[in-house]
Amino acid sequence: MKIRKLLRILHRDFGYFIVGMTTVYALSGIFLNHRHDFNPDYKIYTDDFIVQKGNAEDFDANTIKRVISELPYDLKYKKHYISSDNLVHVFIESGEMVIDPMKGEGVLRFLERRPLIFEMNKLHKATLGTTWKWVSDIMAFILLFVAISGIFLLKGKRGFVRWGWWLMVAGFVVPLVFALIFI
C-alpha cells in the first residue's frame, strides 16, 4: 500500500473519530475565550427581597429557613451569623444572603452551574484527573497527526507545494504575531 493512500485512510478515520471531541473543545474554547465578558461556568443570581421588620436576634435558623423557602429558588441553608452592624449573614449552598432586619430588606447572591457548558469547560481544562488528561493528550496527538497528514494528501495545483505552504505559514504567523505583540 502506498504511503499517500495509507495517510488518506488514517487521516479520514482519525478525523471521524475526533469530530465529537473537537466540537466540545471548540465550543468550550469559545466560552473560555469570553470568560472576561461573562462567567462561562456559572450564572450569577442577585435578587432583592422583603422580610418582616424586627431585630436581628429574631432571625434564628428556623426563621431563616422559612424565608428561604418563600424565595423562588431551590436554596439550601448552611448557617448564619449576626454581624456587629446587626445584619444577618446567611450562608447558603453556592451563595449568601444578607438580611437587614431593621429595614426589612434582604439581598441574595448565589451561583448556579450552566448546564452542559460547565461540564464542557471542565473537560477542556483537563481538570478531571489523570485518566482524562491522558485521553486529552491522545486527542491532541491525533489532531497533530490529522494536521500534518493533511499536508501530504493533495497533489497538483491545490496541493501543498503550489498552494498549501503559504496558508500553513500564515497559520503559524498569526499566533506568532499576537504572541510577540501581547506577551
Rank of each mutant, 00 (worst) to 15 (best):
E57H: 10
R35S: 14
N121K: 00
I142K: 12
T22D: 00
N62S: 13
I151Q: 11
I92R: 01
S28G: 10
A126I: 09
W132N: 11
S136K: 06
I92K: 02
E119P: 00
A140M: 14
G156Q: 04
L10M: 00
W163S: 12
H11Q: 07
L87A: 13
T130C: 00
L7K: 04
F38M: 11
R35E: 15
M97R: 04
R66C: 00
Y73E: 06
G54D: 08
F172R: 03
L71A: 09
L10E: 00
G164Q: 02
F31L: 12
F182V: 15
G20A: 14
L87P: 05
G29L: 11
N86K: 11
L144I: 15
I9L: 09
W132E: 13
L32N: 05
E57A: 15
F110Q: 01
G104E: 05
R114M: 00
R8C: 07
V90H: 09
F38I: 10
S28F: 03
R12D: 03
L176F: 15
P115V: 01
L87K: 13
W134N: 15
L10C: 07
G29K: 06
Y45I: 12
W165D: 07
V174A: 14
K78C: 09
L10A: 11
T131E: 15
I148Y: 12
V90Y: 03
T63H: 12
K125P: 05
V67Q: 13
I82G: 12
I148G: 13
D13H: 01
L116Q: 09
S94Q: 04
T127R: 06
R4Q: 08
D48L: 06
